[in-house]
Amino acid sequence: MEVRTIKVFTTVDNINLHTQVVDMSMTYGQQFGPTYLDGADVTKIKPHNSHEGKTFYVLPNDDTLRVEAFEYYHTTDPSFLGRYMSALNHTKKWKYPQVNGLTSIKWADNNCYLATALLTLQQIELKFNPPALQDAYYRARAGEAANFCALILAYCNKTVGELGDVRETMSYLFQHANLDSCKRVLNVVCKTCGQQQTTLKGVEAVMYMGTLSYEQFKKGVQIPCTCGKQATKYLVQQESPFVMMSAPPAQYELKHGTFTCASEYTGNYQCGHYKHITSKETLYCIDGALLTKSSEYKGPITDVFYKENSYTTTIK
């Protein structure tokens, strides 16, 4: 009895394709271990004539594949690729409408935090270190965002349907971005203890939790000093293409032309909904596939993004 075979390709990165001759009487799992086709788990399936010449994702289970996976995804987590594939199996079914010149995501599976993050990423200057993220990001900007969303979920250790947080998501993504040249110098002034300067680099240099107003941050924000008295913390120097200011959701007025974009969060910790506000020729609110415009805006804002380049204080 002759062994019926077909020729397929296996890959971990969709760049390096490895030619395989597979036995049609055995499952993919018996031949390769966990195997995925377009995100779908085909591990328990036997090869079919229609699979001839198709590319299958496999887990990096030998040295060659491990090197290829690390170079593309910059992670050695053995569960990463499987999590990416199972997320992709959902995100490829989502709709990605162009809204006001940006790629958004039609609401499904509690994905409003991903839509808000995706919209924000198209408006701030950011370059990702893992080629996987950078490639998928370019495709997302062009309207094909399924891979990018699935990668975000995998890097953030999230599953489809789980509630997510924009600030946490951005923080994970910033860790995989090139923020080497970003720098922030802060000064804390206390009447009792004097003053202390701190220099922050990388992710810490672009994120701040405690106030939404970048102007206020430049002037000074009140913080408790270690001595128990009130101290003032203010920005001395900022070198970065953008800054992200966050605070627990509270009524906040966004003035046209003073910011790049913002995240609105309605609801409580267990259950809520994100919308995205962007400042173009007027203010726009993007909620999944829905767009509304207004000249002014007041609502429960939790993150505001500002364009920056270089700032030095005039406070002496």
Rank of each mutant, 00 (worst) to 15 (best):
V58T: 10
N268F: 11
I6Y: 09
G267S: 12
F128W: 13
G210Y: 01
T35N: 04
N268M: 10
L290N: 15
S263Y: 00
Q270K: 11
T11C: 05
T312A: 10
G101L: 05
Q251Y: 12
T198R: 13
N157C: 06
L59D: 14
S213I: 01
T55G: 06
V21K: 14
T35F: 09
T120K: 04
D109V: 05
L102W: 06
V22S: 08
V203N: 06
T75C: 09
L121D: 03
K275H: 00
G161Q: 05
I277Q: 06
S279K: 01
A40R: 13
V12K: 07
E296G: 10
T169Q: 05
C149K: 01
D23C: 13
H48I: 15
T35M: 13
M244Y: 01
V185I: 13
F305S: 01
S279P: 05
N178Q: 10
S295R: 14
T55F: 06
H48Y: 14
L118G: 02
Y36K: 01
Y172L: 13
N110I: 01
P97G: 06
N110D: 04
H276R: 00
L133P: 02
K275L: 05
A262K: 00
M26K: 13
A117C: 09
G101Q: 06
R83D: 05
H276V: 02
S86Q: 15
K7E: 11
V58A: 07
R139I: 08
G202S: 05
V166Y: 06
V3L: 13
Y252H: 12
K158A: 06
M170E: 00
T312W: 09
A177G: 06
I15V: 09
L118C: 02
K127Y: 08
F128I: 04
Q122K: 02
K127A: 12
G101K: 05
L37E: 14
K298D: 11
K127N: 11
S246H: 01
T192A: 11
V160H: 05
L126W: 02
M24Q: 13
V99Y: 12
V166I: 06
S213W: 01
D287C: 00
G288I: 00
A115F: 05
C261W: 00
H48G: 14
D135G: 07
K92D: 03
M209L: 12
M170D: 03
T120W: 02
G272L: 00
V166W: 03
T312I: 11
A177E: 02
F259N: 00
F32M: 10
I315K: 15
P241H: 08
D109Y: 03
T55H: 10
V58E: 05
F80E: 05
V206T: 01
T260F: 07
L37D: 14
E215W: 06
I152G: 02
G272Q: 03
Q123L: 05
L114K: 02
E144A: 12
E52C: 11
T159P: 06
E71T: 09
T19D: 13
K93Q: 09
E144I: 06
P224A: 13
D303H: 01
P47K: 05
Y311T: 08
P130M: 03
M245I: 04
Y234N: 05
F217D: 01
Y113Q: 02
Y284W: 11
L290K: 14
L153K: 05
A145Q: 02
R66W: 09
T199F: 06
G143H: 05
C182L: 03
G53P: 04
L200N: 07
L121A: 10
M170T: 03
T91G: 03
C112L: 01
K183F: 11
L133H: 03
V206E: 00
E204S: 10
V236F: 06
E215P: 03
T211H: 08
Y113C: 02
Q98N: 11
T260D: 06
F242W: 09
L200H: 14
Y72I: 06
L283K: 00
S310Q: 15
S263T: 12
D303G: 03
Y36I: 04
E71A: 11
T313G: 11
N14C: 10
C261R: 00
P131R: 07
T10C: 13
G299F: 02
N157E: 08
V160G: 04
S25A: 15
I45L: 14
T43K: 10
T302E: 00
Y269S: 15
H51K: 05
V3G: 12
V99K: 12
Y269A: 15
L81A: 06
Y172D: 08
C193M: 04
Y234M: 10
G257C: 05
A150D: 03
Y84F: 10
F217K: 02
G82Y: 08
K307T: 15
K219F: 06
G161D: 03
V304Y: 01
M24V: 14
V166E: 01
K298A: 13
L283G: 01
H276M: 08
E168G: 09
F80M: 04
W94N: 03
Y138N: 15
S50I: 13
T226N: 13
T266M: 12
P97N: 06
E264L: 06
A150Y: 00
T282A: 14
M24Y: 10
H273M: 00
Q196V: 10
S213L: 03
L37K: 11
Q270I: 08
S240Q: 01
I301M: 03
F56I: 09
